[in-house]
Structure formats: C-alpha cells, structure tokens
Computed example of a mutant assay.
Amino acid sequence: MKACGKVHKYGDNVDTDVIIPARYLNTANMEELAQHCMEDIDIDFAKNVKKGDIMVAKANFGCGSSREHAPASIKASGISCVIAKSFARIFYRNAINIGLPIIECEDAAEKIEAGDEVEIDFDTGVITNKTKGESYQGQSFPEFLIKIINSNGLLNSLKEN
C-alpha cells in the first residue's frame, strides 16, 4: 500500500481546535467539515488540498480535545497520510479508528517542506521525498492496521470479519 502527494506542512502542537474549529462541530457532514479543516492556521488549505496530498507536522500533532472530528476532517479533505514527529495519543487512536494513516518519523517531520512531493510505502515505512531525493525510515504498518485502513476504519474492518 502506498500514498503519494504534495505536502502541506505545519509546526508543533497543532491542536484539534485548529484542525477543525469548534464553531463547525454542529454538523456531521464530512464534506462540510473538510471545507473548514485547518482554516484557523491555513485559510487556503481547503481550496489548495488535492486528493492524495500528505500532511506533515512537527511534535504533538492533534493535541487538545479528544474530538474525532479532527482526523475525520483531515481524511475528508483528501489527505492520504499524516506524518509527524509525534502525535497526541488520543488523536493517534482516533485516526486509526477512522482509517487515516499516520506515521511518526522525526527525520521526515524535520526535513520535508511544504510543496515537496512525497511517497510513502506503508508496508516498509519508507518515506521518499521525491523533490529532494531523500528517504526517511518511519514505522511500517502491521497487517491488521493495513486491513483497518483499507476497510476505511475499525468498525468497517470488524464488520468484514
């Protein structure tokens, strides 16, 4: 399983209130939430993101409240994977539960820049920055996580068994 796309880059401590502001939580419509994803720190994110793009951030991505809307709005926006130096634990769990691939990799988080073209091999964990000709070793995904992601989330994966 692979992902390839243009990078949208963010810094440290991007919290769930910035990922999807609370003022939009009165809807369960994922397309509507995607239109407001990241707008408080990147007003043009929704109009610039393309299906398959990749989000890269530094440390403690997804900190703050435990709202599931945060990873769901990222996924609905078209982002195929989030790479960060580290993730808040509840965000990490929520992302896996909805089938949003996430990878912790300090080198990639530090060296990849906005606009770079990046390819990720989930089986090996290798992240290739095609723009810079560099590779970084992230964690590979175990088979059960690949099944959850391919099933579009934990609940769908359980239903398929």
Rank of each mutant, 00 (worst) to 15 (best):
E39T: 13
A28F: 14
I19H: 02
A109P: 09
A84V: 08
D121H: 01
A59I: 09
D40C: 01
F141V: 01
N97H: 10
F141R: 00
C4S: 10
G115P: 06
A84C: 11
L25M: 12
D116P: 01
R89I: 09
N94V: 05
D123E: 14
A109K: 04
C63V: 03
I43Q: 07
K9L: 10
A22W: 09
E104Q: 15
D42K: 03
G5L: 02
N97M: 10
V18L: 05
K6C: 08
E106L: 08
D121A: 02
F144A: 06
I54R: 01
I149A: 12
I43W: 05
Y24P: 00
K85A: 03
G52I: 15
F61Y: 09
Y10N: 00
I96G: 10
L33Y: 04
I74L: 14
I41H: 02
S80C: 07
G115A: 15
R89D: 14
K75A: 14
S157Y: 14
P71D: 12
A114C: 08
N152C: 12
L25S: 00
R23N: 08
A28N: 13
F141P: 01
N26D: 14
I120Q: 04
F87S: 03
F144I: 07
I120M: 06
E31K: 05
E134L: 11
Q139G: 09
M1K: 07
S65R: 02
Q35G: 07
S73W: 03
E32C: 06
A28P: 07
A114F: 09
Q139K: 14
I98D: 07
G11A: 13
K111M: 10
I112R: 02
P71F: 14
E104L: 06
E117T: 15
I149C: 13
T124V: 06
K6E: 14
I90E: 07
L158H: 08
Y92E: 13
E32I: 14
I146K: 08
G138S: 05
P101E: 06
S151G: 11
F61I: 05
L25T: 04
M1H: 10
F144K: 01
H8Q: 05
L155I: 11
K50A: 14
K111I: 08
I20M: 01
S135R: 13
E106W: 12
V49G: 01
E113Y: 13
L25N: 02
M38W: 03
I90V: 11
R67Q: 09
N60K: 08
N13A: 11
E160Q: 04
A3I: 09
M30R: 13
A57W: 03
M30W: 11
S73V: 01
I54C: 02
N152W: 08
A59W: 05
L100R: 01
